[in-house]
Amino acid sequence: MNVSSSTPTPALSFAHLSKSYAVGFLARQRRAALTDLTFDVARGEVFGYLGANGSGKTTTIKTLMGLVFADSGEARVLGLPLADPAWKARVGYLPEQPYFYDYLTPREYLDYVGRLFGLSPSVRTERANALIEEVGLQDSRDVAVRRFSKGMAQRLGLAQALLNDPELVVLDEPMSGLDPIGRSLVRGVILRLKREGRTVFFSTHILPDAETLCDRVALLREGRLVKVGRLDEILERDDRNLLEVLVSGGDLAGIPEASRTGRMGERATLQVTEPELLATLEALKRGGSRVLSVQPIRQSLEDYFMKEMGKGGGGPA
């Protein structure tokens, strides 16, 4: 490693991390959950941790958070070894499908969490109120969590992960169980964190989420790292970005036959490459068609995913 002292340490680094679980009667056998995991997450980036369910995403995150213990290898958080408790005050964590104490209200729960961080009462109240606003729980701030929906619990989970003003936020499936409004809220929070220069590491099996948010992603399959890289590096390797144009009515005579990919009554879909787009739009205008939408059809993560996962597919969805 040629990391000079001026280079900031990565937010997260994994070196040959392996973990297996005991399975079977009397736990005589072990099943590998993670095998030789090695990669870094740089400061300030939004990093997507992708994989099908059961591919080891949650195990990785639990190992980071000290909930399970690795068999071998090591991980560092903000440059510190896992065993060093000093990083914990600087990191936020949202577990998968979080559960909070039934009998507490969001305000009480956040206050409890704030006390664990050693925050003063005034700071606790201030931050709790701000975060309750941000995640949209202001109408339920004094409702006991036992009456919360899954989505509300997820929002509260996000709030508790941010209470300590963390440099690094680790989110395990932050989008799952959320309605579209909730998802866009989480996206907003992640973008806000990125703007503020914080690092976000989140796992998901919902690919569009990663596509819209991540600087870099890691792909995990059956506990092994498949690929790490910038999204455009991974996705645009075979370049030729296609665009899909949806049109209505008019004469499509000026459009090459090869570009017309579908027709439903008045409507038609066209596929063109980026350089062809302007010419196509001109032709459509001349023909009197209305352009309803233009969308990039990048090779999506989903496609990439399916390709990488091979014939076996992505495991159980």
């Binding site: 639990k62 000290g66 914990k88 577990p95 499908q97 979080p98 969490v113 664990l116 680790v170």
Partner: peptide, 14 residues
């Protein structure tokens, strides 16, 4: 069982 201690153990709580 309810995983309610997961977020807590990620805090500075041993």
């Amino acid at each position: 069982e309810r995983r309610s201690l997961y977020p807590l153990l990620a805090k500075p709580l041993t």
